[in-house]
Amino acid sequence: MIKSEQRKATIAVLVDNEPGVLARVIGLFSGRGYNIDSLTVSEVDAAAHLSRITIVTSGTEMVITQIKAQLQRLVPVHRTSDLTVEGPYVERELALVKVSSSGETRVEALRIADIFRARAVDSTINSFVFEITGSLEKISAFVDLMRPLGLVDVSRTGVVAISRGPDPI
């Protein structure tokens, strides 16, 4: 009756861009003990004062339904959509990855970056900053490969996502 397997969910939330709205969303997750794997927010329509929040979370089916319902109940929330179940969607994250190395390892880092279609956006004699976009998994894989090759720092944006096809959300 109660499905207890955990699953991941990428939830898109359209909100009024007003003070405190992010605090409401984050407070909801911390107050009710839901996971946040990734959260991004930015204004998407300045004229209509709308922001879009993308949250990657995980939980049982019942918990994810709860999360959606709890989000929808916040007064400034216009729409929520669990992209993971509501049809095909595109999910991307951008990361800046700093690697410091020399000699053969440096060449290897560059080679792998090339395979991952990462671009060097900064380089010095002994370092690179790579810019990479892709799915969460792809970026994690890239970062893992860079670890033995002199990984210094990673800065990730968190996931943004949008449904495929002509319809909104």
């Binding site: 109660i2 019942m62 339904t65 709860q66 319902a69 709890q70 929808q72 109940r73």
Partner: peptide, 11 residues
């Protein structure tokens, strides 16, 4: 009236 009350504790 509140969707979050439904399927919260009991399916």
């Amino acid at each position: 009236i509140d969707a979050s009350s439904i399927n919260k504790n009991i399916a």
